[in-house]
């Protein structure tokens, strides 16, 4: 599982301030902290940055690569900023992101070819995000053909089915998991898949968000997920990833996570008899699965029912 560290995001006030003041030390600390915690790629989100993007992106790329040589993900809709960043980027790089929207496709895909980058591709069009997995798969099929033709190798394409929130688009969550499954069957070798993980719990109470993120991650892994833009400082999340990846069944909760991953992989329901209903941690995981699979209606206090 490729973890793309999400913490350098322009919406965070600390990041905004660091970018505005060109505070290299602050950015470097945030980058290093994530690398140490286990991030394989650092996402550099500078927002749309219409005016300043062509200065900010090269600055932030150079700032980050002074302290780490992990892959950098250049995250903005501003193609000129992406190109300016790629020109100075020495190591492996990723563009975040292209989509089926003509502007974004035409701007980003040639850059991925020219600069030999990984490419995140959102399965959305000008019309928005289809609610159902099949609709997103249809977009992915079209994009896969066109992007391959443009010269990007299949294994460097990361399809992002787009994660909608369980709090306001509950029925779409499981469609995202199914979309991942379909994306992995589109070609041989298959394209890669990625999700912006934390979005699934956006709007939920803070104390529940890590649990929702973690359970969703395991479900996505069952469907074949390759990468996640996520918080590498969330230790329990990374532990859940490791647990499932290494099939660690040393504790009942770990066993349940492995069972959950297997159930999704086999397109089966998670068997309730595998859940020890006397163990609050297992019950919380089970309730979260039911919420994410749209079996029980979401409410902020769903864990208390």
């Amino acid at each position: 599982m490729l973890i793309i560290g999400e913490r350098i995001h322009i919406i965070a006030p600390r990041v905004r301030a660091a970018v505005d003041n060109r505070d290299a030390k602050a950015i470097q600390e945030m980058a290093l902290q994530q690398v140490k915690a286990g991030a394989h790629v650092i996402d550099l989100n500078i927002g749309p940055a219409r005016r300043t993007g062509i200065e900010v992106m090269p600055w932030i790329v150079e700032t980050a690569q002074q302290v780490t040589d992990v892959e950098l993900s250049l995250d903005t809709t501003n193609a000129a900023a992406v190109e300016a960043g790629l020109k100075v980027c020495k190591g492996r790089s990723m563009i975040n992101s292209a989509s089926a929207e003509a502007n974004r496709f035409n701007a980003m895909v040639p850059l991925a070819t020219q600069y030999n980058t990984d490419l995140i591709v959102l399965t959305m069009t000008e019309k928005g995000i289809p609610n159902e997995a099949a609709g997103r798969a249809e977009i992915a099929i079209d994009l896969l053909g066109r992007i391959s033709e443009a010269g990007v190798p299949t294994e460097r394409i990361y399809f992002d089915p787009l994660v909608l929130t369980v709090t306001s688009n509950q029925d779409a969550v499981i469609e995202t998991v199914e979309a991942i499954r379909i994306f992995k069957q589109l070609s041989d070798p298959p394209p890669k898949t990625v999700v912006g993980l934390s979005n699934v719990s956006n709007g939920a109470p803070n104390e529940n968000r890590p649990l929702i993120n973690r359970v969703f991650m395991v479900m996505c892994m069952g469907a074949g997920l390759d990468a996640a833009i996520a918080d590498p400082l969330d230790k329990e999340l990374l532990e859940a990833v490791r647990t499932v990846a290494t099939r660690d069944t040393s504790t009942p909760v770990k066993q349940l996570m492995v069972n959950l991953c297997d159930a999704v992989a086999n397109m089966e329901e998670l068997d309730p008899s595998l859940v020890d209903m006397k163990d609050p941690d297992q019950v919380a995981i089970y309730k979260t699965v039911q919420i994410l699979q749209n079996k029980i209606l979401y409410a902020h206090s769903y864990l208390r029912v």
């Binding site: 209606l297 979401y298 409410a299 206090s301 029912v305």
Partner: peptide
């Protein structure tokens, strides 16, 4: 809003 309705029912019954 279905989610808020359920939440409100939970809060009141709590």
């Amino acid at each position: 809003d279905v989610n808020i309705q359920k939440q409100l029912n939970i809060l009141i019954s709590d």
